[in-house]
Amino acid sequence: MICSGRTRLKISRSFKTLVLQKSFNFRVQFFSNCSPKKLRMDNNLNCSIEGNKKGSRGALVVLEGLDRSGKSSQCTRLVNYLEGQRISAELWRFPDRNTDVGKMISAYLTNTSQLDDHTIHLLFSANRWEKRLLMETKLKSGTTLVVDRYSYSGVAFSSAKGLDIEWCKASEVGLLAPDLVAYLDISPEKAAERGGYGGERYEKLEFQKKVAESYKAIHDVSWKFVDAFQPIEDVEKQLQEIVIDCVTECQKGKKPLSLLWSK
């Protein structure tokens, strides 16, 4: 089919009109959806979301206490409780015996190696420093860490051997400070009555009495004391109450991370 020049001109004009009309309709729709008021609202919402992401984090919760005070059992129960509340949580233990340093510590604790008191203290400290970066990354990503023993144990046990407390603290300065320290309070005598006592190097009654005194020397008003001689379920419930408040506060961005024993 052959079109005349006049016919081709009409088709061309009709096509241009159609394209212009669609373009006009698109611009009207676009600017209607992106009015200044709507754009401002969207920007404010995005800023709010970003702000929440930056401020919200996981909590660093530490359980301390004498050997056989129930820390390990309560840490496991606590993580299960938090996960049941749809809170991302992980259980950590120090010493971490899976690292190279941790294996040296494990050999010492099970009496298969001998080390100077200063040396073993620094190994315990190094074991915590090995995990510092990962700890910070986990907390900032929103994961709450429930930690079975931390720097306080290192200082309490080493000073119980006669080492200077300030020297013991020095190698720990700069590690992340806990948001909550829960001390499971039990007398050395009652702890010694529990099953499995005496299996490791430090599980000796007279030494545990000295550790208890060392804990008294380093604790502060921020610590929460829980009677560990209560029934397990009562200890568990009390820990849940104090920990959930701490976790909520960290999730709301009200507690920035801080460093241990920093001036």
Rank of each mutant, 00 (worst) to 15 (best):
I244C: 05
E241Y: 01
S72G: 15
G58F: 02
L257Y: 02
K131I: 04
V19F: 12
K209Q: 12
S12C: 11
I2T: 15
S125E: 04
A170H: 13
C246D: 01
A126Y: 05
L45F: 14
N25M: 12
S153V: 04
I242Q: 07
P231R: 08
I242W: 09
S35W: 05
E64Y: 03
E249A: 13
G55E: 14
R97I: 07
Q74P: 00
L259I: 07
V173T: 12
E241P: 07
A89T: 05
A107V: 02
G195S: 14
P231W: 04
S262L: 11
K216F: 04
E90W: 00
F30P: 01
S12E: 14
K16D: 03
V181F: 02
P188D: 06
L45G: 09
Y81W: 13
A126G: 06
A170Y: 12
Q74Y: 04
W261E: 09
T143M: 05
K22E: 14
E236N: 15
L115K: 10
Y81I: 01
K131H: 13
E64N: 07
V235F: 06
N46L: 15
R77W: 00
L184N: 10
T119P: 01
Y183K: 14
G195Q: 15
S258M: 10
F30R: 11
Q85V: 00
S141R: 09
G58A: 08
T144R: 04
S72V: 01
V19I: 14
A156C: 09
N127G: 05
S187T: 15
L205H: 09
N46Y: 04
E136Y: 00
S56I: 05
I186W: 07
W261I: 06
E241S: 13
N33E: 14
K252E: 09
L39K: 11
E213N: 12
P36V: 07
S187I: 01
P178T: 06
T112V: 07
Q238V: 10
F30S: 06
I120S: 08
L18F: 12
